[in-house]
Simulated assay, not measured.
Amino acid sequence: MGSSANRTEIIKRRYERIAKYYDLMESLMESSGGKRWRKMLWSEVSGNTILEAGIGTGSNILYYPEGKNIYGIDFSPKMVEISKDKAKRYGKNVDIRVMDIENLEFNDSTFDAIVTSCVFCSVPDPIKGLKELKRVLKNDGKLFMLEHVRSKKLILGTLMDILNPLTVNTWGANINRDTVKNLKISGFKILKEENLALDIMKLIIAGK
């Protein structure tokens, strides 16, 4: 697919194309556990300055804690506009910006906590993206993730490998990423790993 920059542009265009349909596409996951998982994710989050990396259409905004300095970034301008509208609707004060997770425009050690949900299936270079998150996270900060990953079960994992080219070419999402392994490669320490749906959907907490 070419360089990381080219891959990012290709995937961004795919998300721009589906932005107005994205919530509808996600509705099945939301009704079958997604809302509960998001609430669980945010119940774990602590700290005063928080970044949601990959805010998308703002599915997590409803669960943001009050009285915190919260930033949200996404590389899709159309999704950012939708998330800004949701923040206004829910009465949440959020600084939402168009930004690439692989090239964050924040200083080192800015955030007490960083949150992602179903993001690292789409980051073209997940190691680069994770290292950027590690850079802007404070030394005692934590990364909170709700992510779907490749199953370790032989049949299910193989099926995910077979279907992956279809999902990547349709909307840019890899369904067979090993995000726990990528976290370790990027220098994070796994503090918690909890399976929420088989071994595909996980709640992960990591530190520096």
Rank of each mutant, 00 (worst) to 15 (best):
residue 3 S to D: 00
residue 4 S to N: 13
residue 8 T to P: 07
residue 16 E to K: 04
residue 17 R to I: 12
residue 17 R to K: 13
residue 17 R to H: 14
residue 17 R to V: 10
residue 18 I to C: 06
residue 21 Y to F: 11
residue 23 D to M: 07
residue 26 E to K: 13
residue 27 S to T: 12
residue 29 M to K: 12
residue 30 E to L: 15
residue 31 S to H: 15
residue 33 G to P: 03
residue 36 R to A: 09
residue 36 R to K: 14
residue 36 R to T: 09
residue 37 W to L: 08
residue 42 W to Y: 13
residue 42 W to C: 04
residue 42 W to P: 05
residue 44 E to F: 11
residue 45 V to G: 02
residue 47 G to S: 07
residue 47 G to W: 02
residue 52 E to C: 02
residue 58 G to A: 06
residue 60 N to G: 12
residue 61 I to A: 08
residue 61 I to D: 02
residue 62 L to D: 11
residue 67 G to Y: 01
residue 74 D to C: 08
residue 81 E to L: 14
residue 85 D to Q: 13
residue 85 D to F: 10
residue 86 K to Q: 11
residue 89 R to I: 08
residue 91 G to V: 08
residue 92 K to N: 09
residue 93 N to Q: 14
residue 95 D to C: 14
residue 95 D to S: 15
residue 97 R to I: 11
residue 97 R to E: 11
residue 98 V to Y: 03
residue 99 M to R: 04
residue 101 I to S: 06
residue 105 E to V: 09
residue 107 N to M: 11
residue 107 N to C: 10
residue 111 F to T: 00
residue 111 F to K: 01
residue 118 C to A: 13
residue 119 V to N: 00
residue 122 S to H: 03
residue 123 V to H: 01
residue 123 V to N: 01
residue 127 I to E: 06
residue 127 I to C: 12
residue 127 I to F: 08
residue 133 L to I: 07
residue 137 L to C: 00
residue 137 L to N: 00
residue 137 L to A: 04
residue 138 K to S: 03
residue 141 G to C: 00
residue 142 K to S: 08
residue 143 L to I: 04
residue 144 F to P: 03
residue 144 F to S: 04
residue 146 L to E: 00
residue 148 H to V: 14
residue 148 H to T: 10
residue 151 S to V: 09
residue 151 S to Y: 06
residue 152 K to S: 12
residue 153 K to A: 15
residue 154 L to N: 10
residue 156 L to K: 14
residue 157 G to H: 01
residue 157 G to V: 03
residue 158 T to F: 15
residue 160 M to H: 09
residue 160 M to N: 08
residue 161 D to K: 15
residue 163 L to T: 10
residue 164 N to L: 07
residue 165 P to Q: 09
residue 166 L to I: 14
residue 169 N to S: 13
residue 169 N to Q: 10
residue 169 N to T: 09
residue 170 T to V: 15
residue 171 W to Q: 08
residue 171 W to S: 08
residue 172 G to A: 01
residue 174 N to E: 10
residue 176 N to D: 04
residue 176 N to M: 09
residue 179 T to P: 06
residue 181 K to P: 11
residue 188 F to Q: 05
residue 194 E to V: 13
residue 195 N to T: 09
residue 197 A to M: 11
residue 201 M to R: 07
residue 202 K to L: 12
residue 203 L to H: 03
residue 207 G to L: 07
residue 207 G to M: 03
residue 207 G to S: 12
